[in-house]
Design a protein around this nucleic acid. Structure first.
Length: 470
DNA sequence: TCTGGGGTCCTAGGACCC
DNA sequence: TCTGGGGTCCTAGGACCC
């Protein structure tokens, strides 16, 4: 354990919702809820104003609407969040080359490996605190958002500290005071202890970290299994030597959709599966990877979930190979009663592809289908553009039992451009109308206007940066 | 109007190999 | 015709995280 609190954990406050408030002046200080807006959507992020109504992440959107009927409900705009996240991560990299992002809104930084490393060894905690306050100020002025920061001697404690700092705060846990802090916490604060482990521990009479720390390691291993038991025991004692690791290669790529209505018809299910396989392959290729194992995931009408997978002798990124494997795996599954979710993934990733003899053979055997294949890929690109126009994956696709074309939809929160009124965002739409508020991150609160959904003056637009052209 | 989407890691059994 | 033991790969499922 290091003698100086030089591990920093950064957590952006209510990230998605805060980005929306920063880019939409009319929503500042108001309850904002970002997530899937369909019947089966869940909350991704609720602003602090919305949390006061009891709304929180992972809650069913239907329940959120009951709790906070007057909140603003918005679809996520992942492209914008990614841009903002990149700006924040760049600020972190000024502090150290060892930056480990955990998600778009969270990262560890090892200050000891950066320019302050040496001074930190002599000046200690007060310098760490000053560096962290400067960072928070930078994020506020250069990005336009608030962040919470935790500092301590291990990853686990730094994360506990940032949790205690929320929102918009800084907490530093000094070397030597780790156990003192852990003694106040419930087992749920341990990383790796979720609902199931919490229940196992509770049945053994353990609800506090201090009770777990008092147990011999073997007893925990007996309760939780080899790796998990040993890990939880060490963390409960404050022992955590996990290093901050910068670049970590992804080990799998997957896409999945939950449908608005359960899918019953096998042909329809196969069509959706092929779409998903295509999206998965595009993501795989965009990352410059290929993989050996194809996984199909199915969630049935009753929420029971199963996966089927098959491994190739060599990695591939070939859309035909992957789609065919996915179809074969699907064939082995009983679909009676309907399914609510379908997914396709690839694991066993490699950076390189051997000469793909399997794909070649498959293509040669299917030469007569070449025209169909080209048409399929064109359709895939069309879908990609559509996704981009909605600011990223827009969640479940509309259900079209008869396969009729999808009508142009205006999703709440989406960016639009009007030939006369300029940049705005969709507040809502229905009965052939769409309501738009015309405002930008740096404008005053904008005015609302209503148009016909097919008004030619209105088009989809890209997101504007938060602070006038960062 | 119950329960998203994209990941990681671990376990356990059977196959297979030496 | 009393049947080892260990390592590794594959598959399926589950817990957990944000």
């Amino acid at each position: 354990m290091r003698p100086v609190p030089s591990i920093l954990h950064l957590d952006m406050d209510a990230f998605f919702a805060s980005v929306e408030q920063a880019s939409k002046p009319s929503l500042r200080g108001k309850p904002v809820i970002v997530g899937g807006l369909g019947a089966r959507g869940v909350v991704s992020t609720a602003s602090y104003e919305a949390r006061r109504f009891g709304v929180h992440s992972a809650m069913a959107m239907a329940q959120a609407r009951r709790l906070a009927p007057n909140a603003a409900y918005l679809i996520p705009r992942f492209e914008l969040y990614r841009q903002v996240s990149d700006e924040v991560m760049a600020l972190l990299r000024e502090l150290s080359p060892l930056v480990e992002p955990l998600s778009l809104d969270e990262a560890f930084v090892d200050l000891a490996a950066g320019p302050y490393g040496e001074a930190l060894a002599t000046e200690g905690a007060e310098l760490a605190r000053a560096v962290a306050e400067d960072l928070r100020e930078d994020i506020r002025t250069k990005v336009g958002l608030t962040a919470s920061v935790g500092l301590s001697t291990t990853k686990f404690l730094a994360k506990i500290a940032s949790e205690q700092a929320k929102p918009d705060g800084l907490v530093l846990i000094e070397a030597g005071r780790e156990r003192e802090v852990l003694d106040t916490l419930s087992v749920r604060a341990l990383p790796g202890v979720g609902p199931a482990t919490e229940e196992t521990l509770r049945r053994a009479g353990l609800t506090q970290i201090r009770e777990v720390a008092a147990l011999p390691q073997e007893e925990l291993v007996h309760l939780l299994g080899r790796a998990h038991g040993a890990g939880v025991h060490a963390l409960a004692l404050g022992l955590d030597d996990r290093p901050v690791v910068a670049e970590r290669d992804a080990k799998s790529v997957s896409v999945e959709d939950t449908f608005e209505v359960d899918l019953l018809d096998r042909d329809h299910i196969v069509t959706e599966l092929e779409r998903l396989a295509d999206r998965c392959v595009r993501r795989l290729r965009a990352a410059g990877r290929s993989g050996r194992t194809v996984v199909v995931k199915i969630r049935r009408f009753d929420f029971s979930t199963l996966t089927r997978s098959e491994t190739l002798p060599a990695p591939t990124d070939d859309s035909l190979v992957i789609a065919q494997m996915a179809r074969r795996l699907l064939d082995s599954v009983e679909l009676l009663g309907g399914i609510r979710l379908l997914g396709v993934g690839v694991t066993g990733l490699a950076d390189w592809t051997q000469e793909d003899l399997f794909a070649q053979a498959l293509r040669e055997g299917l030469e007569e289908d070449a025209a169909d294949e080209a048409a399929g890929e064109a359709a895939g690109e069309e879908e990609a553009r559509e996704d981009a126009a909605y600011g990223g994956p827009a969640g479940p696709r509309a259900f079209h039992p008869g396969g009729e074309p999808k009508a142009r939809r205006w999703a709440p929160g989406q960016d639009v451009e009007h030939t006369e009124f300029g940049h705005g965002w969709v507040q809502g739409s229905g009965v052939g109308r769409v309501t738009v508020r015309f405002e930008t991150p740096n404008s005053p609160i904008g005015r609302v206007r209503t148009f016909a959904v097919d008004d030619p003056a209105l088009s989809t637009a890209g997101a504007l940066p938060l602070l006038g052209g960062v």
